[in-house]
């Protein structure tokens, strides 16, 4: 019952966001989540999730979405 690539990544980001949810205000958490992704994820994973920022239906939680947007910005800056 393997989920599709993007489903798996969305699930992972949401799980990270959820676990960091009490660390502070939403912006702060989103920043921490994006740092975590930047630090631990391989480039193809980062790229794939970043490509889906615009896609409303992939199921990213609001904080996750914010984090992925930040991640995409970091990726772009490289």
């Amino acid at each position: 019952m393997s989920a599709s690539k993007i489903e798996r990544l969305v699930k992972m980001v949401n799980q990270i966001s959820l676990n960091m949810s009490s660390n502070g205000p939403a912006d702060f958490v989103a920043m921490q989540v994006s740092e975590h992704l930047e630090k631990f994820w391989s480039p193809p994973m980062k790229n794939l999730i970043s490509e889906h920022i615009a896609d409303q239906n992939i199921g990213l939680s609001p904080i996750s979405l914010k984090a992925v947007i930040e991640l995409a910005a970091i990726q772009k800056a490289k």
């Binding site: 393997s2 690539k5 798996r8 630090k39 631990f40 994820w41 391989s42 480039p43 193809p44 994973m45």
Partner: peptide, 18 residues
């Protein structure tokens, strides 16, 4: 300079054909 794949990521990537 970028992190590589973790074991579970490797399995996923293998199944995805990457």
């Amino acid at each position: 300079s970028e992190p590589g794949l973790r074991i579970p990521n490797m399995f996923d990537a293998a199944i995805d054909g990457d």
